[in-house]
Structure formats: structure tokens, C-alpha cells
Write a protein that binds this DNA or RNA. Structure first.
Lengths: 339, 339
DNA sequence: ATGAAAGCGCTAACAC
DNA sequence: GTGTTAGCGCTTTCAT
């Protein structure tokens, strides 16, 4: 198996057709399950396929016909996050079920990375692409327009999408949590987030949160957005930072649950009682919260539904079926015992 | 943007060549950075590319030449796991840096799913594939042989690989942890794992663990492999199960860290002191452990290195460079405060 | 350094 | 229900 340069004399449609005693076209029709062949022909072709071990060449098919491409490009912020992993998983399963293949990419919140990825991916003439995040470079928008290719933007809801948007209403999530925390008595609140590169993505929640605080008598005492990947550890030391900065905090809103859990443990290590001394809220409804002694107050979000809906909308658009342009994926504030 | 059926009059190489006043062949040489053109020609072609907004058609390129395919198929057990996400992330970054694109798939531990995926993927004539897990159907092996395509098997080390194997030595991980737990006084030990579908993958660690226990005076009191996705919650109720079955346990080895953390919280909820009443060990070196009040005893594994090594080995093989067949990715037992 | 001709394997369009 | 012809946009090979 070490000779990767072995000449690949692949079996072609022509050979299948010959063995079956039909023309290439007829064999092609059978394999594509198009109409226009008899049962007998069908069986003969399939037998030939079997016998020769024929592997169709989609490269040739997609090349010969614009509509034969079943490649879908999907670019997420990162692959290491459980949230995006779940979305991607759901997208891939749905696409695969519908007969499409997923080419991935991750942009790490850098729009130029997305641009570079898209440039390469478009050269494969994909049937459609799924992007995430709100920020795209002008070149990206231009390429998408030029190619006239179906696009679904996911994660952040975009009310004036390039083509289709399927996302969470992050602003509302933050707003709702802001109101809730104030209603539970929080007045001096901090926000703790983390972003590896370009700012923006998680911040929509913060905007909504801020607005709710201001409107309902709360107060943002401080905020800390670490230059880091969101996660347990970032939450832990982000909490240390805000607490050392402001000793009078009575609540912290985190960019996501894992950070909140990190914060929870920091508080615990300092002998702070949650929620008596300080309230803690997260976002995402991540699994870790299910085993904590105290149920985490968070916003549960439907990542699987988001992915499935996005993939289905894309394929519907590709197939020319009617699709809604803007679809809100469900989120729900789940009161726990930490606020 | 709603008209996805708009005719795509893509710019072709021929148009670029014409505008540049050269032949298609010369333009092709310039774009592929092959040799055989003057600086002047180069500049003219590039200007034409710019002016026309030319997007090369890799479908045509790969179709016209076997060696132009830069598609790599990567199939992992699931996309929702942080571990596999990390491996995939690392693979994708490495491949992308080397000029290749990643088509993904997940098999959910069902060999037939992998087979279905591979069948589809091979029709795209990928330059190589990366598979994970030990179990492949005979058809998979046959297809791989017929296509004479470079293959890297990851995650589990395979000492007689199809082509190349880059993996962790799970047996040794389990063995080492078994010895360690016994050396720390554990005698009545349980194993708690979880597998969604076909058994096997996580079990190699268990095998090594068992062997070490038996050899060093420990004893496997019970074991529970849940039909579930490994995670915090599975660890939580798996622990409940083994503890209710055997009240005399003095240690539990978990399939991975998240399960161990779930177990930790279960013990805590029952007033059991760790490690005084019971020891707990995991596998993976996952991030959550970094914020726990007690550092989790675990095996830290280099998922990023695994992915990078696997991707690099695959590309080296594709390019006909010398590659090692069997590569062990590093793992290291990290003593914490839970054993 | 550059070009001309052939062909990769399939599908669309049209004939029969 | 089936076959024929043309052509997708590149790269290969061979000339010059």
C-alpha cells in the first residue's frame, strides 16, 4: 500500500455500459435514477456495476453539469467548541442525509481567514455555502454575489441576510438575562467574556444585556473580555479579574456556560456563596451544568435545530423550493439556582 | 439573491489567456506556478485574472489530472466531542496550510456508516483519506485497496495499519492508570464508560487497565458501560449505578475526563470524600479539570499533535515523500488529587 | 518560453 | 426506452 502513485485505471461508465450492453447514456440514467429505462436494463446495468466494482466519478459529473455538484462549504468560527461542534454535526448529518458532502473550514473570528477559505472553496464550485458570524469582508460579499451561489448565514441572526439567515437572537438572550438578574436583585453586575481574535461575536449578547440593565435599574460595574478562547479556565481567571477590580459585585454574566462554571469554581474557592454573595449566569445550556450541585442559570439554545434548519434551508434554496429568508432558532432562559 | 438558478457564466482560463494575449497553456502554467514563463507573461496573466475576477475551476483541474485533487476525506467518530473536535481542528488547519481541503464525515462508531461515507467520498477522487477507529468493514478495506489511495488511521494506534497509523496507545494508558491506582491503595475498583453504538473504541483502555489490575493485586469489582454518549451526565449516573451495585468501591476509572467530573459531582452529592472514601481517575486531560477544586488524576493526551502529525504524514505520502508507518502520539499520566 | 491538439468521464440536448 | 453528438475547463504531451 505504500505506492501512492500507482496508476489508477478506474472503471468508467463506458465500461459499465459496454458490459451491460447499453449506451453510456442509458447507464448514466440508471445510476442517477433518472427515468427512461426498463427494469431489465436497470438490472443489467446494476449487475455490471457490481461486477466491475464501478466507482462513479463525481468530479466528472459535477464538471460536466452545473447541477451535479453536491459539495457544500461550511465555515464555522472554530471546531474545538462543543457548541459549534454540535451545529456542525447537525449540519453534516442533515446534508449527508440529503445527498450532499460537507467541506469544512474555520475562521477563528478573522474575516480575512473566511475570505481565504471561501476563495479556495468556490473553486470547487460548491452547490452552496454556510457561513457563520456577522462580519464578512467586502470581497466575500462580492464573490458570493458574482457566483450567485446559495448562502446561509448561521449563528447570529441577520435580519437583512446575504441570502438566508438562520440564527439565535443573541441580543434578546442578553436582554432577557439582564432583566432576569435585576428582577432577582442584582444591581452591581459584571460581564465576563473571551474572544480569541477580532471582537464582536459574543458581544451582541452583551449589548442586549447592557440595555436591559440600564432600563431596569441595574448597573454594569465592570466588564472583562479576555483575549482568549472562551472556556472553563478563561471564566475562572476572568472572574478573578473582575472580583479583584470590584469587590461589590452581586452578579456576573458570562459569555457562555463553561466560563460561568469556571467562575462558579473560582467563587467557591474564595468562599463566596452563590447566589447569596454573588449571582452567576451563563449562556448555551451546555452539558456540564447538568452535573453541578447547583443548577446553573443560563439560556438554553437549540444548536442541533439550528444546524438542521440551516442545512435544510440551504438545500431547499438549491433545489429552487420556497424558503424563509430569516429564521430564528429557539433559545430559552432556564432559571437555575445560581441567580 | 433568490435566484439560485441564474446562469453562471464563469470566467474561464481561455478568457484570461485571451486577455493576456497568451495561450491557455501559458496562463495555466502561470497560475499553477509551474515553470516556463517570463516575468512579463506572468504579470500580464495575473493582471487579466484580476481584471476578470477569474475563479479557477478545480473540478475541471482535478478531473483533467489525477494529481490535481486536493480534497481529503476525514471521518471521525463524532463532531460533538471536544477531543475529536480538537483533532479535526488540527487536521483541518494543517491540511489547509498545505493547500488541501477537508471533506468531513462522522460514523458514530458504526462501521457501516463509515463504509457509506467512504463510498460517497471516493467518488470525489480525494487525494487521501483519514479514518478513525480500529474497526472497518471488509468492503472499506477492499475499496481502499482498489483505489490505491493514501490512508491514515488515527486515534487508535494500529501496529499493522492499512497504510499509516497515527494514534494513542490506549492500552498503555489504561495499564499505566491501573498500576497507578493500585499503587495508591485502590483495591476494589470499577470502570465506568459509555458507548453510543458498536462497542470497542474506549474499551482498549479498559483492557490495559484490567490487565494491570490483575497483575498488581487490584480487583475489578464491577464495570458499567452505558449505552450513551460519553459526557458529564453519563459519568454522573454511571457512578450512581456502580456505587449502588457495590458499596465497597475504593476507586473508579472513567472512560474520559468529562465522565470522571460527572462522577466527582455524584460522589460529592452523596457526601463521599475524594480520594479518601473513593478515588477517581479520567482520561484525556480535558479543560474542565483545570478549574476543579481538586486536580483530576488523568492521562493527558496530545490531540492537536495527533491531528497535525496525521495530516502531515498523509500529505507526505501523497507527495511520495518517505513516511513512518506507525506513529505513536504522546500521552502522559498526570497525577492529581483525586486518586 | 510558448503553443496546439487530445482527452479526462460525465451529462444535456436532441434525435430516433 | 434508448442512442448520438457535443462539450464542460482544465492538464498532459509533444512540438516549436
Amino acid at each position: 500500500m505504500s505506492d501512492s502513485k500507482k496508476k489508477k485505471d478506474n472503471v468508467t461508465l463506458a465500461q459499465v455500459a459496454e458490459l451491460a450492453g447499453v449506451s453510456k447514456m442509458t447507464a448514466s440514467r440508471v445510476l442517477r435514477k433518472a427515468s427512461g429505462f426498463s427494469q431489465n436494463t436497470h438490472d443489467r446495468v446494476m449487475r455490471a456495476v457490481e461486477e466491475l466494482g464501478y466507482v462513479p466519478n463525481r468530479l466528472a459529473a459535477a464538471f460536466g453539469s452545473d447541477k451535479a455538484s453536491t459539495l457544500i462549504g461550511v465555515c464555522v468560527p472554530r471546531l474545538t467548541s462543543g457548541m459549534f461542534g454540535s451545529v456542525l454535526d447537525s449540519i453534516d448529518h442533515t446534508l449527508s442525509r440529503l445527498g450532499y458532502q460537507t467541506i469544512i473550514g474555520s475562521h477563528e473570528q478573522v474575516p480575512e481567514t473566511e475570505e481565504a477559505w471561501l476563495t479556495t472553496i468556490l473553486s470547487w464550485r460548491p452547490a452552496g455555502v454556510i457561513l457563520s458570524g456577522r462580519t464578512h469582508t467586502p470581497t466575500v460579499l462580492e464573490m458570493l454575489r458574482d457566483q450567485a451561489i446559495p448562502v446561509v448565514e448561521i449563528w447570529n441572526l441577520n435580519t437583512s441576510p446575504i441570502d438566508i439567515s438562520v440564527g439565535f437572537n443573541h441580543f434578546d438572550c442578553g436582554h432577557e438575562m439582564g432583566r432576569y438578574m435585576v428582577s432577582r436583585g442584582c444591581r452591581n453586575v459584571a460581564f465576563v467574556g473571551a474572544e480569541a481574535n477580532t471582537p464582536g461575536m459574543g458581544m451582541v449578547r452583551f449589548d442586549g444585556f447592557m440595555e436591559a440593565l440600564e432600563a431596569s435599574g441595574g448597573h454594569l460595574a465592570t466588564r472583562e473580555v479576555l483575549i482568549d478562547r472562551p472556556g472553563f479556565y478563561a471564566g475562572y481567571y476572568g472572574t478573578e479579574t473582575v472580583l479583584s477590580r470590584r469587590g461589590d459585585l452581586d452578579g456576573i454574566y458570562y459569555q457562555e456556560d463553561n466560563m460561568a462554571v469556571g467562575g462558579l469554581f473560582y467563587c467557591q474557592s474564595k468562599g463566596l456563596s452563590v447566589p447569596d454573595d454573588i449571582s452567576i449566569a451563563g449562556w448555551g445550556g451546555m452539558e456540564v451544568a447538568s452535573v453541578l450541585p447547583k443548577r446553573l442559570t443560563t439560556t438554553s439554545v437549540a444548536t442541533q435545530a439550528l444546524g438542521k434548519t440551516a442545512a435544510e434551508a440551504l438545500i431547499a434554496r438549491i433545489r429552487g423550493e420556497p424558503v424563509q429568508d430569516v429564521i430564528v432558532a429557539p433559545t430559552r432562559l432556564v432559571p437555575g439556582s445560581t441567580v
